[in-house]
Design a protein around this nucleic acid. Structure first.
Lengths: 256, 256
DNA sequence: CTCTTTTCTGCATGTTGTTGCCTCCTTGTG
DNA sequence: CACAAGGAGGCAACAACATGCAGAAAAGAG
């Protein structure tokens, strides 16, 4: 067990990015206290992150570059804590040297933030925020799939994206879920997303999805796959009647 | 240490712009009270914003200019201010409906932040931060080029990146410069970056580079192109002997 | 595991940026 | 024209910053 409160440089910078993702601006002296290092060190961190283009340095602190990736305005604490928990549970299915395919979504972002900094793996993603969140994971090779940026979900879509996937084979696809219903299947509100997700599903050995209970048994316009395509379903829902309808489709259901 | 309710300078100026968007006209003494700083500071803020052309200074306050625009503006250390100035000068070469190819680098990031929110254009980039920075530009279509993420510079590189460029034709390549020398050419510290930049140069009609004077007449290990490949060179350097060596290569040099 | 090499951190130094106050100048208004 | 209000510039105090250095910690080699 490591010392309490002491963070490695990578961890610290990761933490700064996470904080900035939620807080719009940070103040150096503030971070110094929260992360238990001197202001000099914080300044050095901020400088590095600025050089990489991950944050924008300003006098006395730093500001976020774009809009928040996660909608923190309304359901900040409740939902985020929940998603964090789901992400933690998903970790048990991640093994060394895996090739992970990860698409967009706030839950997935929480997930990559939970990945150990020492994990050795390959991550393939079409989501810029996901890629940027992995900058400090030195042993994770990040491969970005290009395409037309769909700003609403911050993922790359289109023919180029699908074509690229033709030459890919992944061990595990960590799928972001908008809506899911045991009978209707997994669905999304846009056609482009559906196409890419379907393709991603087809090039992966296993599929994992983290789903908060408000998304269980809901559906949208464009069907991606039947629910049975999933290998693992991580959720906080505990109503056995709902869960059994997934479990009966050979999906490994994990809840609390 | 900064207190809780205290606003950073950037935030304060941002706030002024917001207020001005809603109110058409502001009074300095009024802002002083609302933002909890002295009138002198407000006057300095208004002066800065006026210099940037974001507001119009009038006696006892300021007025709004044109349509409401939110600005990501930052005034910080010398370098940032410099890069911002370069970016502004580069704007004159950007025209409606252009297809822009933009790679990584802090200066380029400043550049895209300066682009008007109303600009209609296509931006093709291999840099996740650049893509993220354009989220609010509703009339800019962003196309991301995939590849292996080179975390040091936050750009996608590799065979996939180069291959993608085979099918692209851009009006203007906004090239991030590490080092440039009139005789040796444009150079970068890594092979992968050199390959991609070279390819980008070859698929673009014109090439624009913003270069702070500390990078002029320096070189690194991997040559991208001769300096003469540039169409426009924007710099803050004003030594005519240095600039003439670029100018004599048919490069349009912009300084001042 | 131990030893070496490299990276990281905090402190001390000097530099720059920011703000409020002050004085003197400018401008608008009656 | 006179006069009050606003503004420019200088100054001082303080906060934030950059840099070099030595000790500490992490990573790598054997």
């Amino acid at each position: 067990m490591k010392g309490e409160g002491v963070l490695l440089k990578q961890e610290r910078q990761q933490k700064i990015l996470e904080i900035l993702n939620g807080e719009q601006r940070v103040i150096a002296s503030d971070l110094s206290q929260r992360l238990f290092v001197s202001e000099d060190t914080i300044r050095r961190d901020l400088k590095e992150l600025d050089n990489k283009g991950l944050i924008r340095r300003v006098h006395s602190g730093a500001m976020r570059i774009g809009p928040p990736v996660v909608d923190f305005s309304t359901r900040k604490n409740v939902m985020n804590e929940l998603k964090m928990d789901l992400a933690k549970k998903a970790l048990e299915f991640i093994k060394e040297d895996m090739v992970l395919l990860i698409d967009g979504g706030t839950t997935n972002l929480h997930f990559v933030n939970q990945l150990p900094l020492t994990l050795k793996a390959t991550v393939i993603t079409n989501s810029p925020p996901i890629a940027m969140a992995l900058t400090n994971h030195n042993d994770i090779e990040v491969i970005m799939i290009g395409g037309t940026l769909f700003k609403e979900s911050m993922v790359n879509l289109g023919v180029n994206t699908v074509e690229f996937l033709d030459n890919i084979r992944a061990d595990l696809y960590v799928m972001g879920i908008h809506k899911i219903d045991p009978n209707i299947g997994i669905s999304v509100p846009s056609l482009g997303e559906a196409e890419v997700k379907r393709k991603m599903a087809s090039v992966s050995n296993e599929i994992l999805a983290m789903v908060t209970s408000d998304k269980l048994n809901t559906f949208s316009n464009h069907i991606v796959t039947p629910a049975s395509a999933l290998t693992y379903l991580i959720t906080d829902n505990d109503q056995s009647d709902i869960l059994s309808s997934y479990h009966s489709q050979q999906i490994t259901v994990v809840n609390e």
